[in-house]
Design a protein around this nucleic acid. Sequence first.
DNA 1: CCTCCTAAGTTTCGTTTTGGAACTATGGCA
DNA 2: TGCCATAGTTCCAAAACGAAACTTAGGAGG
Lengths: 116, 116
Amino acid sequence: MKWTELSDNWCPVARTLSIVGDRWTLLILRDCFLGLSRFEQFIESSGMTRHILAERLKRLVDAGILERRQYSDGPKRYDYVLTEKGQELGPALMTLKTWGKKHMPVRRPTGNEAGA
Amino acid sequence: MKWTELSDNWCPVARTLSIVGDRWTLLILRDCFLGLSRFEQFIESSGMTRHILAERLKRLVDAGILERRQYSDGPKRYDYVLTEKGQELGPALMTLKTWGKKHMPVRRPTGNEAGA
DNA sequence: CCTCCTAAGTTTCGTTTTGGAACTATGGCA
DNA sequence: TGCCATAGTTCCAAAACGAAACTTAGGAGG
């Protein structure tokens, strides 16, 4: 069975994961909750490649989780902000954060403390 | 940056995702919370391939989230149960379920209602 | 005018992961 | 002696990923 077929699964967890359950999407959303909104910011903060970021952003916009917003009219530039629907994923990120703090101690720091 | 390097990220969300943030792992855990524990059960319930399931189970055991337990001594057979650490991912699954019920309606059923 | 700069992507190409299906191992049971 | 169940492993083609270069659209400075 292919991953994408999960979007119509009987289980709501599976349906949710069909959108946010890949390797980078939740990290983009974390960045949004930290106040980031621009392409280059996501790149720097998360460490993912432009290639993948572009594809994920498209998917999140299609899913109604992010909104693509023009923020400059000189050279047309766009950024991404959470919709209401996206905001409601906040609790999920909080549970992952709580679990991580308790069960995944840092072994060697990545020197990105100021990454937000 | 490679996915696996996230295990030492400064952000606890990223560290958590370095274990459970791939395409099938959280679905295995959902099944565990539903009471499933055997290889063939996971296969049937989730629809993933044996190949991937075997690899994910190994990773979850290494991470201390599942425990591999011998349940038969005739032909030696093993199943998998949540550890304390694994149990504590329950709240995360609940938030994903809640979000999915609200924001991801089923369009065409997969006929797996009895899957649990 | 010419060149360099920023910022959001897109393209290309080699590597890794995934999906599907067949195969293996171990012992029970008829 | 076959046949069955169950937990994996192996093989290979297809898809996704990662790194890095390239594109597009205007701004700023000389």
